[in-house]
Design a protein around this nucleic acid. Structure first.
Length: 539
RNA sequence: GACCCCGUAGCUCAGUUGGCAGAGCAACGGACUUUUAAUCCGUGGGUCGCAGGUUCGAUCCCUGCCGGGGUCACCA
């Protein structure tokens, strides 16, 4: 605990800008300014609220006190009297202490109704001049408290003439004075008025969005529950949650361009991880058998409603299993997540009913392409793939390799058609430098993706554990890289060294948490499931 | 990266074929002691995203820029 050395009295806005104790900036050691020189002019309402704050202080009321004890949340109180005939004043009086933000005030002379929003929801409060005193009611409550302020109230529960469960205020304490006006959103008969809809406003000022658009909180909670269910599911099976490096000297595990950064003391370039895969599989070498990680990956790519440069991935690796076993696990995992969130494995998504009930349909990569296009691409050469792509009128650049061509053909012709969860199995080897060769089919690997609503949400394979094959695959990647494929991964010698000690056969899985959350919560944009999506800086 | 759309009060939005910038809510003053988008009377509030250009005059027309959204490209 530290105390300010001296109190700086503030008479006007100018005094807010600099502490009297701040050392003068020097060219050698510039002092970062907490508030820019050209502070924007304050609106009438902002000035007004600052005046109210000073008036509160002049009256000896701390506008930012330290704590307030509560014994309930709004939803608890409403739940306790959800029966419309049950009068809270029948029987024992229910005393409550709650805290939250004032979202509406309706003054009617000597009494007033106001709404308090807390984490659980909103409840109405009722305050009377006679209960709290004329001076406090008129000069503090009515004149100095505003919509947006955070308060604590104590009182008892009753039901109004209109039947609304309400807290009769016996004590009210300001807990935080809001110096900016909160947008006021009103609702009646299913209509919402003055709803804050501006996407930029909502993403940049998510704190306001969360207050004025309660459905955002629902998505936040559902995302948390989705991750909790996933973690429970994995823990129940005995898999160990681990953490691997974000800062990596060599990146790998996916086809993507990385972010670079620099470590000063070691004077070395580092990459932010694009996947967890190579480190998690090192742990299989170490004998951990079943490991998973839920973490952020970073890919230096464009933004869209499906792409945020940092995103959350769950990766799981289980020793002695293969991709067929992993399919069963994925079905069980996703079905449980859907059921936990919605009470049923069926969800509504963009007009479709999607059922995650097991078992899901299984198709093969090349089989699905043949069904959609009529082309059998088994054993096709790069040039043949190019001809097919052009025959399908796809927009392809002339220098694309076989892997990219397969990917292009598949994602253009097959992916959009897969609405119900579908396993797509057995990918061309060119697309999958870390997956084990198919035990029967030449030129393919044992890999599957799960496509739902036309989007990939999982990627998994029987993990390649033959160090010599792995080296050959890396060398192929290096060749692609030399040819200009910036997403081809570099050779990771330490990873090969680990594998040379012997990695057990294993099944691996990656699940994109953001995209899974989009589907499970019905959100059309990844920015609606990420609290603070990357935006260009404000100016 | 390309193309299309958008940016007006704290919020939601009108608007000006180029001529003093509007409404509802919010705010402020007043009335009202169980309201329900509370109501009633009154008042104030704007760099019309930014910078140029055209024009007697630009929020409006033109150009560039900034920010956002969408589609495409790339990607998971």
């Amino acid at each position: 605990m530290t105390f300010p050395r001296g109190r700086v009295f503030v008479f006007g806005d100018a005094a807010d800008r600099f502490s009297l104790h701040a050392p003068a900036p020097s060219p050698i050691n510039p002092i970062p300014r907490p508030i820019p020189m050209s502070e924007p002019e304050r609106s009438e309402q902002e000035q007004r609220r600052r005046e109210e704050r000073r008036e509160l202080e002049a009256r000896g009321i701390d506008p930012y006190p330290y704590a307030w004890d509560t014994n309930a949340h709004a939803a608890d109180i409403l739940d306790a009297f959800d029966d419309e005939t049950h009068d809270p004043e029948d029987g024992e009086r229910m005393d409550v202490a709650i805290a939250g933000r004032i979202t509406s005030i309706r003054v009617m002379g000597g009494s007033a109704f106001f709404d308090i929003q807390d984490a659980s929801g909103t409840i109405q409060a009722y305050i009377r001049k006679n209960d709290v005193g004329k001076e406090f009611y008129e000069e503090v409550f009515r004149d100095l408290l505003d919509i947006g302020d955070i308060v604590g109230i104590e009182g008892y529960v009753f039901r109004t003439r209109m039947g609304e469960v309400t807290v009769r205020v016996e004590e009210i304490k300001l807990l935080s004075k809001a110096l900016r006006p909160l947008p006021v959103v009103k609702e009646a008969e299913g209509e919402t008025y003055n709803e804050v809809t501006d996407k930029e406003f909502r993403y940049r000022q998510r704190y306001v969005d969360l207050t004025v658009n309660p459905e955002v909180r629902t998505v936040v909670r559902q995302r948390a529950q989705l991750i909790r269910t996933m973690r429970d599911f994995l823990d129940e099976r005995g898999y160990l949650e681990v953490e691997t490096p974000v800062l990596q000297p060599i990146y790998g595990g996916a086809a993507a361009r990385p972010f670079t950064t620099h470590h000063n003391a070691l004077d070395m370039e580092l990459y932010l991880r694009i996947a967890d895969e190579l480190y998690l599989k090192r742990l299989l070498v170490g004998g951990l058998e079943g490991v998973y990680e839920i973490a952020k990956d970073f890919r230096n790519e464009g933004l869209s409603r499906f792409h945020n440069p940092e995103f959350t991935m769950m990766e799981l690796y289980v020793a002695y299993k293969d991709y067929r076993w992993m399919m069963e696990l994925v079905e069980a995992l996703i079905e449980r997540i859907a059921t936990d969130l919605h009470g049923t494995p069926e969800i509504e998504h963009e007009g479709d009913t999607i059922s995650f009930a097991r078992p899901w349909e299984r198709v093969t990569f090349l089989g699905a392409i043949e069904d959609q296009t009529g082309y059998d691409l088994h054993g096709a050469s790069r040039d043949e793939l190019m001809d097919v792509a052009k025959g399908l009128d796809l927009d392809v650049e002339d220098d694309l390799g076989a892997g990219k061509l397969y990917d292009k053909i598949f994602s253009e012709t097959v992916e959009p058609t897969l609405v119900q969860p579908t396993f797509v199995m057995d990918y061309p080897i060119e697309l999958s430098p870390l997956a084990k060769k198919h035990r029967e089919k030449e030129g393919l690997v044992e890999r599957f993706e799960v496509i739902v609503a036309g989007r990939e949400i999982c990627n998994a394979f029987s993990e390649l554990n033959d160090p010599e094959d792995q080296r050959a695959r890396f060398e192929e990647q290096a060749r692609l890289r030399a040819e200009g494929d910036e997403e081809a991964t570099p050779i990771d010698e330490d990873y090969l060294r680990a594998m040379e000690y012997g990695m057990p056969p294993a099944a691996g899985l990656g699940v994109g948490i953001d995209r899974l959350t989009m589907i499970m919560t019905g959100q059309a944009s990844i920015r609606d499931v990420i609290l603070f999506p990357l935006l260009r800086p404000e100016r």
